[in-house]
């Protein structure tokens, strides 16, 4: 459905020349996970992405931001330790998550940064199913999903300094739509 709509909107777009940037800074709390992915979805809406593209990008953003919150800052809102019925909520590190997006030549660049604990063993962390927080029922699929759903993934991390996740995705349409249909 979206596919055909985009075709029809053909004459109204200008190919690839538009540039657009945004940056957000928000507290590292779990309720901001949905805020972050909805913000990115709204940011790329003028590019008229397909349902698949939108869903891929939202998932990747959600993974990166969740990682920053629960691993970077260890702000844990999760299901309790073994045998405990109540969820545990503890904020170990106050901090902000920095989200930057850029659209250039039809490519979406996303950067998610935290200034938390950093990743000790990046190679291990990127392995599918590997998690340092099994007690929170983390599946260990975060980086695997980011890799699968985006075209390019780059992770830069320094222990005790923080982590930056950079992702890229070429949007099929890669063009800017002005006004309505």
């Amino acid at each position: 459905m979206v596919e055909t709509k985009r075709q029809q909107a053909g004459p109204a777009r200008e190919t690839g020349s538009m540039k657009n940037e945004m940056a957000l800074e928000f507290d590292a709390v779990s309720s901001n996970e949905s805020f972050a992915r909805v913000a990115v979805a709204a940011f790329i809406a003028p590019l008229n992405p397909t349902v698949e593209e939108l869903s891929d990008i939202k998932t990747a953003v959600s993974e990166a931001v969740t990682n920053a919150i629960i691993h970077g800052y260890e702000n844990v809102y999760g299901y309790g330790r073994h045998g405990e019925v109540r969820p545990v909520y503890c904020r170990i590190r106050e901090g902000k998550v920095y989200l930057r997006c850029r659209i250039e030549n039809g490519v979406l660049h996303i950067e998610v940064e935290d200034r938390g604990v950093g990743i000790e063993n990046l190679e291990k962390a990127m392995e599918p199913l590997y998690t340092t927080k099994p007690e929170l029922e983390r599946s260990g699929m975060g980086f695997a999903f980011m890799e699968a759903f985006m075209d390019d993934l780059e992770v830069e991390s320094q222990p005790l300094k923080g982590t930056i996740v950079r992702m890229q995705k070429k949007l099929q349409c890669g063009s800017w739509i002005y006004g309505g249909e």
Partner: peptide, 14 residues
């Protein structure tokens, strides 16, 4: 997502 997961898991296990 992660924000909702604790509630779902906790109740399911109960």
């Amino acid at each position: 997502d992660h924000h909702k997961s604790a509630y779902i898991s906790e109740n399911a296990d109960r």
